[in-house]
Design a protein around this nucleic acid. Structure first.
Lengths: 239, 239
DNA sequence: CAGTGGTCTAGACCACTGG
DNA sequence: CAGTGGTCTAGACCACTGC
């Protein structure tokens, strides 16, 4: 089993991130410091950091240093929300409102158990919310989180928090979402869904099922979203 | 205006690809050869090739050399088709059939003119086709190509060709698709669409509008697809 | 100005491929 | 075996940031 040095360094840095040695937003030691700490050359540390930066775990800033990536930065906020307004001109003045409909503990269903890799019968938090853009309801989401790491998360706290959910999870529960997989389908709105999103019954909606992972590829959130795509679309880049 | 050496090398290599010095599937010169040709060190060439490989323009094969990427390789076939069967077990035995409904020259509409950056009034090829997986119609597509570079493309030739469309464009018309942008919405099937995809009128379908680019970020294909997501879903990775 | 990441070089050695 | 890309090193210098 051969493993390049820089991969081992990468694993060491990842573990340090996982264990919270450096918190999101923090400045990590310089390449030279890390090189002497790990007993390798700067070039080797550099290659490890390059990959971590490509995976969005770290952010390099020339002249300043390398920082732990965070969901709090303006540019990276809503990194996972691919919904874009149809009229680009409006994109600027979009103010997004969130309304939390529910937040309670429930016993995990079989699909949630499988997705989050928890034990059958474990409790999960279920959050339902609506996102409105310029007053118009655009997204309805049903979110499942393992109850243990998110103990103390209440509707009231959700309402109070300013900023993206993932920023809150990161600073208040120490769980940082690193990557996600989405399964996208088209579905016809049920009577209930239609009322929530204020569209006709049967209206075609985007169904977006997201599984989000933290460090070490651990799944920590299952999310089922319904997007109204009358004035917005889901943007994707293929390469 | 400062530009790193390796970026200039990257541009030189990209231009060579664009001008057809090395064709898709070809082995390009070794790093050492390119280094001496461009008068830089191997490390600099290496970094340029690294980025081109990350962008899927080149493929590195240890011990063999670096090759120009192509749509013909088994692993990269259908790289741009993100539709995945619901039942993973079935994924193996999927045989995909294509039926070309139309292929004719038309004057480009305003939206096609804008997307493909051609002149108002220019002619384009319009292709309509259906993809069936295991006999079931899953995708209906309406494809627009600038007429000039695709002169001689007929329904008969489309029918005859074995393999992905982009593989055909590459080997028969010298146009290689490099990346694409997709706008995804949910729409209700019209009577005509419903008949083509054999679903009820009003059935929710994924609308996928793709703009595909060749070397140098030149748009060369606009494609409007309707995906039936009863037994398939659109898979996406967020990071 | 000192300190950071970013570029570039030259050279050594390793891992993999094909003949 | 020769030739390729892959790793690792050490050192020089550049570009950017903040003080």
């Amino acid at each position: 089993m051969f493993s390049p040095l820089y991969q081992q360094i990468k694993a060491l840095i990842t573990r340090a991130l996982q264990e919270g040695e450096w918190k999101p937003g923090d400045l990590i030691p310089s390449e030279a410091e890390l090189a002497s700490r790990f007993g390798v050359s700067q070039g080797t540390v550099r290659k490890a950091i390059d990959e971590l930066a490509a995976e969005n775990l770290l952010i390099r800033r020339q002249g300043r240093g390398t920082f732990v990536s965070t969901h709090h930065e303006a540019q990276v906020k809503f990194r996972f929300l691919r919904l874009v307004p149809e009229a680009e001109a409006v994109a600027q003045g979009l103010r997004m409102e969130r309304e939390f409909l529910e937040c309670h503990r429930v016993r995990a269903g079989a699909d949630v158990v499988r997705a989050l890799r928890i034990r059958a019968g474990d409790m999960v938090l279920e959050i339902r919310r609506i996102l409105r853009i310029a007053g118009e309801p655009v997204v309805y989401e049903d979110i499942y989180l393992p109850a243990a790491p998110f103990r103390g998360l209440t509707a009231e706290r959700l309402e109070r928090y300013r900023g993206p959910l993932y920023a809150m999870f990161e600073s208040e529960f120490g769980t940082r979402m690193v990557r996600a997989e989405e399964k996208i389908r088209a579905v016809n709105a049920s009577a209930q869904e239609a009322e929530l999103l204020r569209v006709p019954v049967g209206q075609a909606l985007l169904s977006v099922e997201r599984l989000a992972f933290s460090y070490g590829d651990q799944p920590v959130e299952l999310r089922r979203g319904l997007y109204s795509t009358a004035h917005h679309y889901y943007r994707n880049e293929l390469s």
